[in-house]
Design a protein around this nucleic acid. Structure first.
Lengths: 263, 263
DNA sequence: GAGTGGTCTAGACCACCAC
DNA sequence: TGGTGGTCTAGACCACTCA
């Protein structure tokens, strides 16, 4: 007899239609393992377990939620395939983190046309507080004029500029982020966000276009004005699909390409 | 006592290292459900069950392979998440197909900047047999000069040209594909490939770049020469990761964008 | 050896669908 | 009403890690 049951959150569809108005589909049924998954997600979101830490063992979780180990397992399985958790046989299950990824840039899909993807150099061009323009505010779920932190930086491969990024961060979440703090930091930016500000990027959505470089962009990337560039607008989301970063990247694609896999 | 066991394919790591040379990792262990998955994949590849058809029930498969239903379930689960199979509660498990997708173009990531993604019009510009150039042959795993079918077509949204596709298909797989056959066909191209030639696209890899339109491309897409276009080179693969289509697309991105989700 | 996740089983019951 | 996939359980054993 589990403490949680299908009816504890959503009544089985056999009983009265209850809250669901006719015509509305409504969540007819929520299996136990999905309720467990939601509870785990909430604990992650609330910071009960921090990135890199181990969560309780399957047996402990099963005892806590009064369900069988198999049910916990299915919940953890789904969170693992969503990259929120990482399972390590013999050791435990850990909160995913950007800190220990062998792939330097998990979200950067740009790949050299030939040769291995050597790490890129960074050059910080700008970093300051400003007020969000309308489009930036809308993307980040803020109000126009809300404080945001603006970062402009360059990525170089083999000494050649390849990526020009404009990054917008909600000021409220990244208090105290300064040019000095960013410039002195080695390693991926998302690692800094995670360790210093407790903001973990879970997933991201990108909109990709081709456009012609203007004078400023051309100068920064060392191409001719009007040269075609890949424009990649990325919205990064954290737990609960809350947007926490807007990134507008311009990629040179004469020696690199954006790789994607469709399944 | 299952007919298949871990040791039936790969010896458990406890036994002698056998074939694996020292230093080579080698597949140390293959669980039962993965062996079942491989057998199912082989049956799909061999055409034992055709796209759209139902495969045997979990109970039948469990009996056939002499394992428990749970083991079959795990194998089928993985094939379902890879989009090779589709489960339908109460009905059965079916071989995935492009024939019944509500999304008209499963692999086309181009989306209107605003408004719903209305279906696009097609216009066939060219379709003929030719010999594979070196780069095309290499991508498709053919030899230079092998016969290929070349298709050039245009996609229009709201009457405006949006996509210019150059498509290369191995001649050996698509015997009898003519301009008439293609021109008269309504519905996605991959549906035609599947129903007429038994070639099912499973997944694809894309390389994306920005480039400037040349005269021919500009004329076809009704943009100025030199205008920035998105270049999308897609290699489509079928069972066993065998390449079966090379597609070079040029996308206008002034009113559309390529959307992508990173996880 | 103790503790973790990983696999496999057997059986029960539920939700959905078709006849 | 019977068959399908979906959920949940309990227990056994295996593989891996670490003290």
């Amino acid at each position: 007899m589990p403490a949680l049951s299908a009816s504890s959150v959503f009544p089985p569809s056999g009983s009265a239609d209850s809250a669901a108005a006719p015509g509305e589909a409504g969540p007819a049924f929520s299996p136990l393992y999905r309720q467990i998954k939601d509870l785990l997600t909430r604990s992650l979101q609330g910071g009960e377990w921090k990135p890199g830490e181990a969560i309780p063992s399957e047996m402990e979780l099963a005892a806590r939620y009064k369900v069988s180990q198999g049910t916990v397992r299915k919940a953890v399985d789904e969170l693992a395939t969503e990259n929120l958790l990482v399972r390590r046989q013999g050791k435990g299950t850990f909160v995913a983190t950007h800190a220990e990824e062998q792939t330097q840039y998990r979200f950067l899909r740009l790949t050299p046309d030939e040769g291995a993807s050597g790490g890129m150099q960074r050059r910080l061009l700008d970093c300051r507080r400003m007020r969000a323009a309308a489009d930036v505010a809308r993307a980040l779920g803020l109000k126009s004029g809300d404080p945001v932190i603006f970062v402009r930086r360059l990525l170089l491969g083999d000494g050649q500029p390849v990526v020009l990024d404009d990054i917008f961060l909600p000021g409220a979440l990244f208090k105290g982020l300064t040019a000095e703090r960013m410039g002195g930091y080695r390693g991926p930016m998302y690692r800094l966000f995670e360790s210093e500000f407790g903001v973990r990027m879970i997933r991201a959505e990108e909109k990709i276009r081709a456009l012609a470089a203007d004078e400023v962009q051309a100068a920064a990337l060392q191409v001719a004005p009007g040269a075609p560039l890949l424009s990649v607008e990325r919205l990064s989301l954290t737990y609960g699909d809350r947007p926490v970063e807007l990134r507008r990247g311009l990629y040179r694609t004469d020696r690199h390409h954006y790789r994607n896999e469709l399944m």
